Amino acid sequence: MRKLVHLVAATLDGFIAAPDASDPSAPGGLLVPTPDYVAHLVATYPETLPGPARAALGVEAEGTHFDTVVEGRGSYDIGLAAGLTDAYPHLRHVVFSRTLGESPDPGVRVVAGDPVATVRELKREEGGKDIWLVGGATLAGVLYDEIDRLVLKLNPVTAGTGIPLFGAGAAFRPAAWRLTDHTVLAGGTAFLTYDRVPGGEPSA
């Protein structure tokens, strides 16, 4: 079965954006990519780079991890503000929103219904690659129980406060995760991959 993978950049204290939910990767933002960070993405997760970045870097690789990206309205709006109606034209793109209405782009499917039900349908599809949950915190909270793998791009930065990894939709339901891969870049960012332990709870 296809996995739902939450691949997301975060601070050491667990925040993915500033309190105003501004684009954390924009110049002057909370989590601005460094050259070694970008190089690692190109080498390992090229499909997670937005279309314009792929074009600028000459990236043509389809990638080996994902063929579908899902996100919430807040995350999608960051791309819209930058003039991108489909930031990931190389992936099947699903946006969950009850307020967006008609899709601004023929390549983007807007779903007003239950994200959990839709993600379960996507996971049951035969073949294909995994599903990337790009953000944001509210959608990650709603899909908390559906996330099979966490890939945390842990930046050597603290925020003090901000938008947490999981938003208010997440229930208090502790889960255990197994570290399955890790890469620490020279600039200090750590790529940490954790797989959910089925039925697992944190040990005492």
Rank of each mutant, 00 (worst) to 15 (best):
L179K: 15
V69A: 13
D13W: 13
S97D: 12
F66N: 07
A82I: 04
G199S: 06
A137M: 01
W177G: 02
Y76W: 00
E201G: 14
P202S: 12
H90W: 02
V184I: 13
L41E: 04
G113V: 01
A117T: 14
P106S: 14
G141L: 03
L30C: 09
T68Q: 09
G200H: 06
L139M: 10
F166Y: 12
T64L: 05
M1E: 08
R92T: 11
D13I: 06
T138G: 12
E60C: 09
V151K: 06
A137W: 00
L150F: 14
S203N: 10
D114V: 03
P164L: 03
T99L: 07
Y45W: 13
L7I: 09
V94P: 04
P33V: 04
A176G: 04
A186V: 12
G51C: 02
K3L: 14
L80C: 14
L152Y: 15
H65W: 15
T138E: 15
Y37S: 00
Y37V: 05
D181L: 04
A61D: 14
L41N: 02
V108A: 07
D86F: 02
A21I: 03
V134S: 14
A39Q: 06
V38N: 01
K3P: 05
L84N: 09
V32W: 00
G79C: 08
L100D: 00
F172P: 07
Y76E: 00
R73Q: 11
G199H: 07
L143K: 11
K129A: 15
G128P: 07
L91M: 12
A137S: 15
E60I: 12
V197W: 02
L30H: 03
F15H: 15
L150S: 06
V38S: 00
I131N: 05
R109H: 09
K129F: 00
T34F: 03
T180Q: 11
T183R: 14
G162M: 12
A56M: 03
P19F: 15
Y194F: 13
A168C: 10
V69W: 02
E47T: 02
A204R: 15
D86L: 03
G74C: 00
G101L: 11
D77E: 14
T11D: 09
V111E: 12
A21Y: 15
P52C: 10
F66K: 07
A61Q: 13
L143F: 13
V157W: 10
G101A: 03
L152D: 00
G162K: 08
R2L: 08
G72L: 05
L4Q: 02
A159H: 11
E146Q: 14
L192Q: 07
P50C: 02
G58C: 03
T189W: 01
L192H: 02
T138M: 11
L179W: 11
A53I: 06
V197R: 07
P202W: 13
A140E: 13
A56L: 08
A140M: 11
L133W: 05
L143G: 01
T193R: 04
P50D: 04
G79V: 08
L84Q: 14
